[in-house]
Design a protein around this nucleic acid. Structure first.
Lengths: 137, 137
DNA sequence: AAATGATATGTTATGTTATTACGCTTGCGG
DNA sequence: CCGCAAGCGTAATAACATAACATATCATTT
């Protein structure tokens, strides 16, 4: 297998370029970071990147990290939108770990049900230091 | 009692103005929203607001909503920084509900412990519709 | 093939959010 | 009084995001 991120075949050129850039990166990238890396491919304007990102995020192929104003490729080729995802972001090396927790999801659901709140989207981001960076320090 | 948010007495003038503006608002405000409301008080530059916000957030008197790039006064005069706080943000009316959940906090702690990740700060924001807005629709 | 509609694209300009850099002021402990 | 830390004011700029408009691409229907 070439790589674990088998890219969907129905992406447009811009979407493919943007997803490729995210996948190749070891950490989150801002839209402008992505743009800079794709100038050689002919991209010129922020909007070209933002539009591609919007589609990718909608499809669950990429995630937006709100606390960073940046984006990452989805770590799990199969996760596509099933349930709440939490992110652990290391301030040291910039690496992002993506995980799901059914208990947290159900607690949130319980709270929402009790309040009559209809959940549309949940953001959950942990900032701190990963094990590797702690060891190095 | 004048109001439930007994403002600390050791705030600087700018901090007091900013916190007062947040407290008076029914919803989150961006730094620039705050600035606009404080021009009459003599504030002129974004930095004056950002500096005040930084201190207020550090002290737990205000919170930053990452998914909105905006700020709210802490809803609970006594919450000052004890534990993880979640926010439910209504897309309809803009109201923000603030709550804590010990189970979620402990699940997060367990994950972090298992991974050797040192948590410094956690962001948790739910976007959706509040009961009142759902009823109105 | 022509007409239609939905989706994607390219480009310019602009809007919004946040920080850097610099210098002055104020208050407090030594 | 001196020195230092914290706060303040101002200007400039950086970083992030969208509006508005014109074109293009492609499948579907006529």
């Amino acid at each position: 297998m070439a790589h674990s991120h088998d890219m969907p075949t129905d992406l447009t050129r811009n979407q493919e370029l943007v997803l490729g850039t995210l996948t190749a990166s070891s950490g989150p990238l801002s839209a402008y970071d992505i743009l800079d890396r794709l100038r050689t491919e002919g991209l010129r304007a922020p909007l070209q990147v933002y539009r591609a990102l919007e589609k990718l995020v909608d499809r669950g192929l990429a995630h937006r990290l709100e606390s960073l104003n940046a984006f990452v490729a989805c770590a799990d080729a199969h996760c596509h939108r099933k349930g709440l995802i939490a992110f652990a972001i290391c301030e040291g090396c910039g690496k992002v770990d993506e995980f799901a927790d059914a208990v947290i999801e159900s607690r949130l659901g319980a709270w929402a049900h009790a309040e009559g709140f209809k959940v549309e989207r949940t953001t959950m981001e942990i900032r701190g230091r990963c094990a590797q960076c702690l060891k190095a320090a």
